[in-house]
Design a protein around this nucleic acid. Structure first.
Lengths: 136, 136
DNA sequence: TTGCGTGCAAAGGTTTTGCATGGCA
DNA sequence: TGCCATGCAAAACCTTTGCACGCAA
């Protein structure tokens, strides 16, 4: 059992992600963004905090196929993100939380037809959102 | 328009992946596996071939959340992998090709409810397959 | 012979780790 | 004061790239 301290560094990171909750960032992105705000945080510290915040459920993390860096995004207070499916726009990075009934229908079909138990929390539907589709 | 040669190296890589088509490998995995068979191939060459084989559609590639390396897997002659959804078992890595009608129903629901146009080829459902579930 | 493929070495980028120092409780 | 967090430097990895040489056609 380990206790944790509240530090300026951790608050700066979580605040920045919270205020930009519709965007995903790499460790590098966050480092540079905070730097512009006059907050200099070492890259190692960024990584250590991102890892902790992710395991605490405040952030979601994932890899993109066209980049070698891990992306992080604020999870918008969805404390039960491991219980529902997500969808992400490849253009803007926005994440949608799919907690509708039809998702469970889909889940059941996959189970029935392929014998696979879907892990909702880890599954990310990939596509293009309405706004980005319009913008083209 | 560039022509391409058939080489022992490329054949060794694609044969290995073909003979282990239910498993995903990193570049490192492939390098070590072939080494055990007495075939030494430079890591750069592995990467260059994996990239080409993927763009040709012989392989599928993706990132896993718990590793920083790109995974590759033989695509089993599914030449239209960009047209249907996939599901992957987190235990054994096996990939299922979901080209059923219920997937399109799901796709339509996501479009209707969230305005998102699903990219079937890039979407991977995550879960645990029947065999791995039994094995536990 | 022509030109693509490979090996080698180096470099670039991401992420991790050890250790001393700094800061929260 | 007692620990946890941070900064710094170094290292571990993954991946890419330039160049000379090798090999397929």
């Amino acid at each position: 059992m380990k206790s944790e301290y509240k530090t300026k560094t951790r608050n700066a990171i979580i605040d920045y992600l919270k205020n930009n909750s519709d965007t995903r960032f790499t460790a590098r992105d966050i480092c540079k963004a905070l730097e512009k705000e006059g907050i200099e945080i070492n890259r190692s510290t960024i990584y250590r905090n991102l890892e902790r915040l992710t395991s605490e459920g405040s952030l979601v993390s994932y890899k993109e196929n066209d980049s070698n860096a891990t992306c992080y995004q604020y999870s918008e207070g969805h404390s039960h993100c491991h219980e529902h499916m997500h969808a992400q726009c490849t253009e803007c990075g926005k994440i949608f939380h799919l907690d509708d009934e039809f998702v469970h229908d889909f889940e059941n079909k996959v189970k029935k037809e392929y014998g696979m138990s879907v892990n909702l929390g880890k599954t990310v539907i990939v596509g293009v959102c309405r706004e980005c589709a319009k913008g083209k």
